[in-house]
Amino acid sequence: MTKKEVLVLKDLLGTNNEIAAEIRRETESRGILAVNLLSSPGSGKTSLLERLADKLGGRYRMAVVEGDIETERDAERIRARGVPAWQITTGGACHLEARMVGKVLADIPAEIDFLFVENVGNLVCPASFDLGERLRCVLLSSPEGDDKPKKYPKAFLSADVLILTKSDLNAYLPFDPAKAAAEALSINARLRVFAVSALKDEGVDELAAFFVEALENLRSGCA
């Protein structure tokens, strides 16, 4: 019997990252801005997408990929706004992986402007899986508390944009949006911060304008 050491040096997320890179190349070459929305369950991802559908719908073509453990409910809500939506039900998995998004990408029309991917509600696991997005947005709603960023640092560290949601509730809760933003920025100083209320339609125009600017930057070849 011989004992041997075998050097491997392989990233366990390597396969996911390769598929994500392929998705990024594909969407960016088609001039599509891909956005990954990540947050706890119930922090308002779908409600925000409904509002964005209303804001962007007239001028731009968008598509939505919904990730949930079960049910077609979120995709149905988006379709009711006249936006094509694909539901991925993971059947138990707590996050979307690039492979799952890659499978539905073939069905999505080539001539869209925005592809929003709503991840499974979870502030932990989705942070580890690149889906090939150009922008990653992490949502934090006021009822969750302003102390969350340091408790779930990777979600905030890996994001490009922080969206503080349900801002209409700030007056009724011990939630300090400035503290939440400062704590997130102490983890990741590059974060762009927005505050929105999808219910009251506050701050969504600014966010929509930011996405339009990001789309224009993508198409003009700017970073």
Partner: peptide, 10 residues
Amino acid sequence: DVVVERLEIE
């Protein structure tokens, strides 16, 4: 990252 560094085999 999570990296598989090396294996020992017989």
